[in-house]
Design a protein around this nucleic acid. Structure first.
Lengths: 229, 229
DNA sequence: TCTCCTGGTGCTATTATCGCACCTCAAGTG
DNA sequence: CACTTGAGGTGCGATAATAGCACCAGGAGA
């Protein structure tokens, strides 16, 4: 279902990554034969690939003969944007506590927006559970739109982007999840290029005036905190 | 330095993963030539590999021509032990709040222990920053020792393991980090096999009686919460 | 017992990969 | 300004790694 990419430069690596993603997509574990069928490769090929992946702890073989994702992947993801993320975490925490909503840091990847850090408020009983690694089109939802705010105006862009550019933040309601309200602001890098966006998600309408000032302040802190790198 | 593994089943995949890890190890970004030198492969090989990795969003090419880790890796790590992790998070949060120390969930990978979830207390000014994905020998530190508690007695095991088996938890002091005190308990799976350990890390001596009961209770909750899977 | 499906393993034809030569471009350097 | 040096990027052939076959072993179920 994912990865209908026709071909890649390195076939073996490509197959290996597809195997890895197949394993990741099935938390309950997959056998060699199943993996081969899902990925569309020969059983023995999958076998070898899994061996290599196992050596790197990217997958691990359970006693039931099923492969599951291994601890190596979190070691990798650790260092992704560790600068941005570690800098962002305290600000996200403050943001979450102050607004009582789920705060998140989202970056751009191609045509998608991907959340890379989420902090949920501790003092609120019910809140939006926003997952780290959640991927969605950048043109949908406040988090994505905020990143587009940081870019120079594009022909054919959504009206919300053009409108939000003056305000400095983007707001959305129910675009990614019905009932969820979002408000995000862009974080630009040293050269003014869009890097990411910070924002909050709540289960109901947000006080735009109060929330936006908090979000904008967090975005500003992040921008200044990362401009030394 | 890492990965002195002589050979793996699939050479191309192996090289690709090495490239990925090399990129991960240098958050400031690496050029093609540098990557090739670090990994020990030809420049053009690295080039192709990076192309494939880029297609899968595992790495991304910045405007400065440097490759950095891409968002795809967090998507992968999302689903690692998502059952255990999502179940554990609220318990870790409780543990962190109750003890005022950093709570963590650690799993076994070969001869190493790897932390896969960490919750830091919110109401304490200074606390131990324990990183997700931190890897260390399983025979060092309370987190690793606790996992060994869950296993059947091994010849030559550390005295602390044998001693701790009666109490049901392991404690250590300054093994991984001088000044850090740890206390962990094993989480066993349905078949009694060691799955992981939960514990806390603090900057000073822990009240063993009070802390251990909290940690043991968290471990018990986890054990029961995961036995349906 | 027999069958069927699974995991696992040598082995060779074939195919993907490696590494060379080559090009472009930008930054130093005389 | 010409020259050098080092970077990224690309086409192509020989070679080496891989794909897929045949085959073995074991467990579940009929």
């Amino acid at each position: 279902m994912p990865d209908d990419t026709p071909a890649a430069g390195a076939k073996t690596l490509d197959n290996g990554i597809r195997v890895l993603k197949a394993v990741a997509a099935h938390p309950q574990g997959l056998g060699v034969t199943e993996i081969a069928r899902v990925v569309g490769i020969h059983r023995t090929v999958a076998y070898r690939l899994l061996g290599t992946l196992t050596q790197h702890s990217l997958v691990s073989l359970g006693k039931d003969g099923h492969y599951r994702l291994g601890p190596g992947v979190v070691e990798l993801s650790m260092s992704l944007r560790s600068d941005l993320r570690s800098v962002a975490r305290p600000h996200l925490r403050d943001l979450a506590e102050a607004t009582g909503a789920t705060a998140h840091l989202t970056i751009l990847d191609g045509q998608d927006a991907v959340s890379i850090a989420v902090v949920e408020p501790g003092n609120v009983g019910v809140h939006v559970a926003y997952r780290v690694g959640f991927r969605h089109p950048v043109t949908v939802g406040a988090a994505g739109l905020a990143i587009l705010l940081g870019r120079s105006p594009q022909p054919g862009e959504r009206a919300e982007v053009t409108a939000g550019r003056g305000r400095g933040f983007a707001a959305s309601q129910g675009e990614l999840q019905s009932g969820a309200w979002g408000l995000s602001a862009p974080v630009t890098g040293v050269d003014g290029e869009p890097v990411a966006s910070v924002g909050v998600i709540a289960l109901g309408p947000l006080d735009e005036a109060a929330t936006s000032s908090l979000v904008l302040r967090a975005a500003d802190c992040l921008r200044r905190a990362t401009e030394f790198t």
